[in-house]
Amino acid sequence: MARRWLDYKTGAWVQWCPGCGDFGILNSIYGALAELDIDPTNLVVVGGIGCSSRSVYYIKGNNVHTIHGRAIPIASGIKLANPELTVIVTGGDGDLLGIGGGHFTALGRRNIDIAIFIYDNAVYGLTKGQAGPTLPLWARTKALAYPNIQGSVNPLLLAFAAGYTFIARGYAYHVNQLKGLVKAAIQHKGSAVVDILQPCPTYNDFMTQEWYEKRIYYLNEEDPTWDPVIRSPEDMKVKAPRILEKMLETGDRIPLGIFFQDLTKDTMEERLEKAMPGYLRTPPAKRPIDVKGRITLHPFKIFKDKLLET
């Protein structure tokens, strides 16, 4: 019996502002989870702090509302300790790329099988609209007394440099297309990131729905031969320049879709299995640690490098 999107909806009141892009993202996630038929008891949604991180209350799962910027370490620990769980992270650009930027980079290096959804509205909504790390230089939103004098980070290039093996960009109000990207990110084996552009009607009066919709287009619609999948080192050499060119494209035209998917890299779970065969069968969450409450290992029996016979 396949699941429906309603199977993932909780009874909690969704407290986002009317017109918030978060609704679109939430609906895309519901849809993707239903189509993937993921058991909510096997699903873990980890949020940081911010409007978007509250998604943990609206999706049925074993969810964790953490602290600001730290969803990724918690999610990583969960996934490595129990690789059977489906783990996704929801957070804003400020949470994941600002305060949590170090963890965002580190996850790419590890390629743990986690999907990261950046609710990217370029502002700090919950704290009254301060500039987020993706707000362009000199942009002035209504909450700012002066134009922004800090430059913006490019989440896609950052993810690429860090080693993410799935990199996509979506748009919050295109629920259907976004659902496809969310699904692909969850299905991807490895660290996946979807940068989701979304207007914040309350605080970002610069990057509005109109502003976005004038600029966005889909990679595979413009170029039906667009193929972001890397299957070999050769592929990487051939495709990387075009991928990077598209990642760099900003200003009047903003491309959406899957930019990059690298199938050549091991996930960290696979690396651990290689280093310690049996890890996947009895990962930290499931490994027996005692025999009926007794400790049956004695240091003198196992740490022989420290023993000396007198």
Partner: peptide, 30 residues
Amino acid sequence: LDKLSIVTLQTEDEIAAIGMALGAALTGAR
């Protein structure tokens, strides 16, 4: 089981070090 495995991981900072351990603990790991 004839081998005991322990996941040991060097993280990017101490924040992640405790964060990952907390994540693992949530799954039931010691």
